[in-house]
Design a protein around this nucleic acid. Structure first.
Lengths: 114, 114
DNA sequence: ATAACATATTAGCGTTTGCTGATATGTGTG
DNA sequence: CACACATATCAGCAAACGCTAATATGTTAT
């Protein structure tokens, strides 16, 4: 794969790799929501959520649709939803596997502090 | 979802969100490889690759198997491979979609410098 | 035009990340 | 044992990230 494309792909995936963004994605998994609705749902900070939305949009993961003074966000397409579901499934699987089999092979990515 | 579990899930996904790690995963997608084989294949730095392997292992994405003085790494299970493939497919789709339809909605995640 | 609301953007910060180079650990071999 | 080789870990640094608070932009209603 083209070297630069690989960078873009990494950035694409990084879009999914944050707790707040995962929460946002979950909240709009099946319905469009307004920024303020998302802020409300996550009990988050407006600026913070807005930045994460910009990130997700920049990654191609979500799309925005302006309607009046509201901005509605939703997943870009069905495949993104499927990917989210699959990430979930595989993650849960791995979690179980790790918990059940390898007591010494804990999930604790990179330099995760205690 | 439990708040902490969501953090772990984010870390899990973060495992996939780096160019070098994507390259490593690609190189061991269908076969086990030794650290030095991976270093060779990516033309990378041994320390660097080793750290990325530790990260991938900590994320539960890959597993290591020692054999003599060699350490063989491979994907943890078939589902990880499927997830990788699906990430690929969805990413390519999004890329096309963005390139074809929304000239103004460029893929350029978060604060990606020029 | 002004006011009120919804969202985006900016600045500054502390933390985390990824890299390199040096060093440590581990494993087989003479 | 000493030695070579394979891998892991550490230290230090620069860049990227995520957060908050403040401010700017945009949209509707009065």
């Amino acid at each position: 794969m083209d070297n630069n494309l690989l960078d873009v792909k990494a950035k694409f995936i990084r879009g999914f790799s944050d707790k707040t963004r995962l929460q946002i994605l979950h909240s709009i998994q099946d319905k469009e929501l307004t920024v303020s609705q998302i802020v409300e749902e996550l009990k988050g900070n407006q600026s913070n959520i807005s930045q994460h939305l910009a990130c997700l949009k920049g990654c191609g993961i979500i799309v925005g649709r302006q309607e009046g003074k509201y901005m509605y966000y939703s997943l870009r397409n069905k495949q993104i939803k499927q990917l989210l579901i699959m990430m979930d499934v595989v993650f849960n699987q791995v979690e179980e596997e790790v918990a059940a089999c390898d007591k010494n092979d804990q999930l604790d990515c990179c330099r995760r502090e205690a």
